[in-house]
Design a protein around this nucleic acid. Structure first.
Lengths: 149, 149
DNA sequence: TTTACTGCAAAGGGTTTGCATGAGG
DNA sequence: CCTCATGCAAACCCTTTGCAGTAAA
């Protein structure tokens, strides 16, 4: 979670212009933990910028990614955007399609990254660790359907 | 690496028809370690089936995924297909776009999966562990350019 | 013989691009 | 004042869908 001042500083450092639209988009992603899609970001900034189009959002997300503030996570149908740049595990529900960060195993991801960097002759920039399955709520619903149906 | 007989058995088990096209597509993916794209699979089967279209390949890849034989890996521009269903680490070169499996850290991925399954209240089906960066060859080329330029 | 797969064509939809206008530094 | 961002529209291209002919079981 960055303050607006820190955000402005980071953007200026990359010689990009700081516009109200960019700040709104950046905050919509950085102050979220739910890995929003472009559509969801659009919904979140639409109240303040009714005329903003998806092209502007795509452009800004590109700037933020090149600045190292966010990371694009391609999924089958569309991309989501990750604001937690620390090594960690994402839990992806194959039923409700929610994507949440978890603290569980964070230390192991860090150690795994160190090991890959040291032993694999591969220069690591970042990592994506996704576990796919069913979240607690959808697991419960699945059980109910199995019992009744 | 599955034999053709094992492959036929696996497909019959899911009550799908075993056609020459499906066998060719399945072998093109399963007997590879380079995570081919749909286009690459097309190139690999085109000699034997000149009239085969991408629609058939997409359809067959869907069948193979639902049969648990392969896994789709969405990337920014397009999907690649993974035939190594064991927990492991993929190394993705951001320069040449090669995607290779590595044995390094395989044990840690297994332990990470066990930990997530036990401690996170999340029912895990499979996982995707990607490390993005630069492969040895592209790292060397980058160094050369920095020295000369 | 029945069912479902193949191949072709067209549609779908997330993402990118080009350009005129407008705003940041 | 110059450069670059925004907004609009169109293009792009991977992927999906519909359908007629055909092959698997």
């Amino acid at each position: 979670m960055l303050t607006q001042e820190q955000l402005v500083e980071r953007l200026r450092h990359w010689e990009v212009r700081v516009t109200p639209q960019r700040l709104a988009i950046a905050e919509a992603v950085l102050n979220s933990t739910d890995h929003p899609t472009v559509q969801q970001i659009h919904e979140r900034v639409r109240d303040h910028f009714p005329s903003m189009t998806l092209a502007t959002i795509y452009s800004t997300l590109g700037v933020l990614q090149r600045s190292g503030l966010i990371q694009e996570l391609p999924f089958q149908k569309m991309s989501r955007y990750e604001s937690n740049m620390d090594p960690h595990v994402n839990l992806v529900c194959m039923n409700c399609e929610e994507v949440i960060d978890t603290d569980t195993g964070q230390d192991m991801v860090v150690r795994l990254k160190n090991r890959i960097s040291r032993q694999s002759n591969f220069q690591v920039a970042w990592q994506r660790v996704d576990f796919y399955g069913w979240c607690p709520r959808c697991t419960a619903e699945k059980r109910e359907h199995q019992q009744t149906g």
